[in-house]
Write a protein that binds this DNA or RNA. Structure first.
Lengths: 98, 98
DNA sequence: AAATATATTCGAAAGTATTCGAACTATCGA
DNA sequence: TCGATAGTTCGAATACTTTCGAATATATTT
């Protein structure tokens, strides 16, 4: 579940970090011009969370459909799924439509 | 925290029930023409949750700022806070703006 | 093949959440 | 003021979450 995934403080931090560090519309750090990184290790370094915990939380965020992942050599790049983001925005808009 | 409040299945059900049963812009069941109800007991009856549990969850939703409450005689009316709803919609929109 | 860098899985400890029933408080109506 | 209706608080049982370190797996480089 999406909200369960975002209910943990560290997972929310990770999600927000990915949402803000990654240029919208690009796919993680492999748009060379963007110059942003979003691999599992980077998240742990930036947010001071040990790798095994990052890995666990990433799995939850992925399971909830909030982030996408792709292996790039040794690293695994992560980025927020824009489709899900749009879906959530609409979810909270809906009840207000008259 | 808002997402923590919505992370529980029963709380999410309660929130969605309130979001859909109550006419947007009105304040619970005391807009007579609306004809909808949203008191604590109704929620329990509709969603098959015992009163003490409803009460506990309502408190959480209220604490998170998701719902508003007001005593109307013996009953306590609940409704989703439209301001918070708009805030959440904007929250998920933000990262997509370029 | 060995060494290095990166990420995952596992098990365990500590903390937190969920749910219920029983007892309690609050409000209204006769 | 008594009884009925509506909600809350409390305590306890059960279940789930979070986090870490150690061991394991995967990928690159030499």
């Amino acid at each position: 579940d999406v909200f369960k995934a975002l209910s943990n403080p560290n997972r929310l931090r990770m999600f927000l970090h990915l949402a803000t560090c990654c240029v919208p519309g690009t796919v993680g750090s492999f748009d060379a011009e963007a110059g942003v990184s979003a691999c599992v290790g980077d998240l742990g370094r930036d947010l001071k969370i040990v790798p095994s915990t990052v890995s666990h939380h990433i799995k939850e965020l992925h399971r909830a459909g909030l982030i996408r992942m792709e292996r790039r050599g040794q690293k695994i790049e992560c980025w927020v799924d824009p489709v899900m983001l749009r879906g959530l925005a609409r979810f909270f808009h809906k009840p207000l439509e008259e």
